[in-house]
């Protein structure tokens, strides 16, 4: 497929000055427990923005409020100027999501899953292009259970694009992936920015945030502890006199892992197809892992 950056002239896109995501005074309480304590941040159009924090920091709650899965106690959240509460349908149309605790239908093929989800947005997705983008073009007729973990994550990424969204929200997209599969996913996420899309992603992996994100917000105990570019945050820490207590090595164990096992999608596809052929005697059924 030739490189053809997606045009950003879609009528669904807002004017350049409008933030892709604006969160103001967002609060969420459960009884007396304050999960999110009045946070403010904006995500600019076209950037990859990371939401970081330990478990229980309020990331998931914030994400669920942004996509309308959970009502907020107070505050305002807008996606490209559309309020997620008062203009929920419009806001949801503008955002593509990959959720952690969600799944797809077991009985549908990959192409059918995408068509079904697309219909839920009133859209007919180009399933060939979407599956091709995540290098699952030859798996359109496969079921989800036939895919490996990495392939499932890539499929979930493709599924987040069924509505051709200007804003994509990825909730810990690389959790559970091996280092090679994670790096493959990073490339795909970067490609979204290449389209002119905005990406909001949450992650536990600091390396991932450092490599991918233009800016990050670090949440802790329901508040935003810091928000800036990864480099600036590192500089600020170093300026306080912080010094990392490690020996700098030319390579890490992760480098060894990738060196020994790392391969591209094409290699992976060929290997799994060969395995599937060997296991089932035909190429249609997939390798399950």
């Amino acid at each position: 497929m030739a490189a053809q950056p997606i045009t950003t002239s879609s009528p669904r896109l807002a004017s350049p000055g409008v933030p892709a995501l604006a969160v103001h005074g967002l609060r969420k309480t459960y009884g007396t427990f304050e999960a999110v304590r009045g946070i403010d941040f904006e995500v600019k159009q076209g950037e990859i923005f990371g939401l970081l924090g330990p478990n229980g920091a309020g990331k998931t709650t914030t994400i669920e409020i942004v996509i309308g899965l959970r009502p907020m106690t107070a505050g305002r959240v807008e996606i490209l100027g559309h309020d997620v509460t008062s203009a929920a349908t419009q806001a949801r149309t503008l955002i593509g999501v990959q959720l952690q605790e969600s799944d797809f239908f077991e009985h549908l093929t990959l192409a059918e899953q995408l068509r079904f989800l697309g219909a839920c947005y009133g859209m007919a997705p180009d399933t060939d292009a979407l599956l091709g983008y995540v290098d699952l073009g030859d798996r359109a007729g496969w079921k989800l259970k036939q895919l490996s973990g990495g392939q499932k994550q890539r499929f979930a990424l493709a599924a987040s694009l069924v509505n051709d969204p200007p804003v994509v929200l990825l909730d810990e997209p690389s959790t559970g992936l091996d280092p090679t599969a994670r790096r493959q996913l990073w490339e795909l996420i970067r490609a979204l920015r290449g389209d002119g899309r905005t990406v909001l992603l949450s992650t536990h992996y600091m390396e991932e945030a450092e490599v991918l994100c233009d800016r990050v917000a670090i949440m802790d105990k329901g508040v935003i502890a810091a928000i800036d570019t990864p480099l600036e945050l590192i500089h600020q820490l170093v300026a306080t006199g912080f010094k990392r207590d490690v020996v700098v090595r030319d390579a890490t164990l992760e480098d060894v892992f990738i060196q020994l096992t790392g391969h591209g999608f094409e290699d992976e596809s060929a290997a799994e197809l060969a395995a599937a052929n060997g296991r089932h005697g035909r190429g249609k059924k997939g390798a399950t892992s």
Partner: peptide, 22 residues
């Protein structure tokens, strides 16, 4: 990790067209 021009720069696609109300 294998890379491709497509992946590194953009997805190279407009992924959907409108077909009606959700």
């Amino acid at each position: 990790v294998a890379t491709s021009d497509r992946a590194a720069t953009s997805t190279g696609m407009s992924t959907a067209r409108h077909v009606g109300s959700p």
